[in-house]
Simulated assay, not measured.
Amino acid sequence: MSILQFLKKRFSPLRISDPDFGSLLYMRIPNAPERSYWECEWNFPRTGTNISISLPGDESGPWEESRQFYFEAVERFDQILAAVRPKLDEVFMEWLQREVPDYMFSELRLAGFDLQESRAQPVKWDITFETTGKKWLGISIPFEGESPGDATVDT
């Protein structure tokens, strides 16, 4: 690798245009290249809103398992919402002293998905929401496979 290529790779992140996800930016992790990933804003078909997503992969692009995860998330979005509702209710009770409304998107916005290990079994990922009311909360719920963990709240 020439010094010019080295400098370009180091200071100018790789970008590609993906037919499914749009403009992707490569986030190279020098000390752990196997943890490198692509990120983008994707118009999530089920909500019609732009969300942040991460797709593990290498410099050639996202791994097929990463791509498949998001296509499947679209199909199983109702099951994902059913799994996170009790965790969201816990957050709302602690921070807002009430439950999540029946139509959760009247007070929540899907902010994104973070896929950490698309090739692991079970797959490790997070789903993130933001409240839209007077009090802003960032709510991240980790998953191992289909099992949600405890929510983390940012204020």
Results as ranks from 00 to 15, higher is better:
3 I>D: 00
6 F>C: 10
6 F>N: 05
7 L>C: 04
7 L>E: 00
8 K>A: 03
9 K>P: 01
10 R>F: 07
10 R>C: 04
12 S>E: 15
13 P>G: 14
13 P>D: 12
14 L>V: 03
17 S>T: 15
19 P>K: 08
20 D>H: 11
21 F>P: 00
21 F>M: 11
21 F>E: 08
21 F>R: 01
22 G>I: 13
22 G>R: 11
22 G>W: 15
23 S>T: 15
23 S>P: 13
24 L>M: 12
25 L>Q: 08
27 M>P: 05
27 M>S: 15
28 R>E: 13
28 R>I: 09
29 I>G: 04
30 P>K: 08
31 N>P: 05
31 N>A: 04
32 A>H: 08
33 P>C: 05
34 E>K: 00
35 R>P: 13
35 R>C: 08
35 R>T: 07
36 S>M: 06
37 Y>H: 03
38 W>D: 03
38 W>F: 06
39 E>L: 01
40 C>R: 02
41 E>Q: 03
43 N>R: 15
44 F>Q: 07
44 F>A: 11
49 T>A: 12
49 T>V: 15
49 T>F: 09
50 N>H: 05
51 I>N: 10
53 I>A: 10
53 I>Q: 00
54 S>K: 04
54 S>N: 00
55 L>P: 01
56 P>V: 13
57 G>T: 00
57 G>D: 07
57 G>M: 05
58 D>Q: 02
59 E>R: 06
59 E>L: 09
60 S>P: 06
61 G>C: 06
63 W>K: 12
64 E>F: 14
64 E>V: 15
64 E>W: 12
65 E>S: 06
65 E>Q: 08
65 E>D: 14
69 F>C: 07
71 F>E: 10
72 E>F: 09
73 A>C: 15
74 V>L: 03
74 V>R: 02
76 R>D: 10
77 F>H: 02
77 F>W: 06
78 D>Y: 09
80 I>P: 00
80 I>C: 08
80 I>M: 09
81 L>K: 07
83 A>S: 10
83 A>M: 10
88 L>Q: 00
89 D>P: 01
89 D>C: 04
90 E>M: 05
90 E>R: 07
91 V>C: 01
92 F>R: 02
93 M>T: 13
94 E>C: 07
95 W>Q: 02
95 W>H: 09
96 L>E: 11
97 Q>C: 13
97 Q>N: 02
98 R>D: 12
98 R>Y: 01
98 R>Q: 11
99 E>N: 15
100 V>C: 04
101 P>N: 08
102 D>F: 14
103 Y>R: 14
103 Y>C: 09
105 F>N: 09
